[in-house]
């Protein structure tokens, strides 16, 4: 068995390359999901009932689609509509789109749980439109959202593993390639799992940091 880990270590450059792709996909995917999720959350909080309900319908639909199905749809389906991504971009698009729905729902939930009075005070002081959101609403939403954002970020990291199905060269793909070639499944997958664990630990550290900032304001 120890031989297996030696083999994996010899090919650690492939794992490293996989990790870098996983990290890049997770970070870009998460940033896109948070930004678009915040914009969708504004629509979900709209006083316009029709707008609110139709956006809510789309968000609910997206959350009910299995992620794998969405990846297939983006990679195999969209080219039929003339939208042709390479593997990496298709994977990123699916990741960002899928998690935008979750982020929007998380942010909406936190937002609607915050007291409205400080938003009203901002209105009385002349805030309106984008500045009300960027200066007053979302700083409070994100401070309260730390743990839930962390959970979703971990979900995003794990979702990247599905992208092996469309041959995105991420961590799971790399581990899978090494085990298939050298027949060391246990060592290869354990190595990958430990790396996923380390990535999640970094996320947890980030959440702890946000919580510290938030705690000072509670």
């Amino acid at each position: 068995m120890m031989h297996g880990f030696d083999v994996v270590w010899e090919h650690s450059d492939r794992l490293l390359w996989g990790v870098l792709n996983t990290i890049a996909l997770s970070i870009v995917g998460a940033v896109l999901a948070v930004v678009f999720g915040a914009l969708v959350a504004i629509l979900l909080m709209s006083p316009n009932r029709l707008l609110r309900l139709s956006v809510q319908g789309l968000v609910d639909l997206m959350r009910c689609v299995p992620f794998l199905m969405l990846v297939y749809l983006v990679y195999y389906g969209l080219p039929h509509l003339g939208i042709d991504f390479d593997n990496w971009t298709a994977g990123l698009a699916a990741l960002a789109l899928y998690n935008t729905a979750y982020m929007a729902e998380i942010l909406r939930g936190i937002w609607s749980g915050l007291p409205r009075e400080t938003f009203e005070a901002a209105t009385a002081f002349g805030y309106h439109g984008p500045r009300l959101y960027t200066r007053i609403v979302f700083p409070q939403v994100f401070l309260a959202a730390g743990p839930m954002l962390g959970n979703q970020l971990i979900q995003i990291i794990k979702d990247t593993a599905f992208l092996t199905i469309i041959a995105v060269p991420e961590l799971t793909q790399a581990a899978s390639g090494i085990q298939a070639q050298y027949f060391v499944p246990f060592a290869a997958f354990i190595a990958a799992i430990l790396i996923y664990w380390a990535l999640c630990a970094i996320v947890e550290g980030g959440v702890a940091l946000i919580e510290k900032v938030a705690e000072a304001r509670r």
Partner: peptide, 14 residues
Amino acid sequence: RIGMVFQHFNLWPH
């Protein structure tokens, strides 16, 4: 142009 003071203060907590 109008300043307002609220019963429950409504300061911005962040």
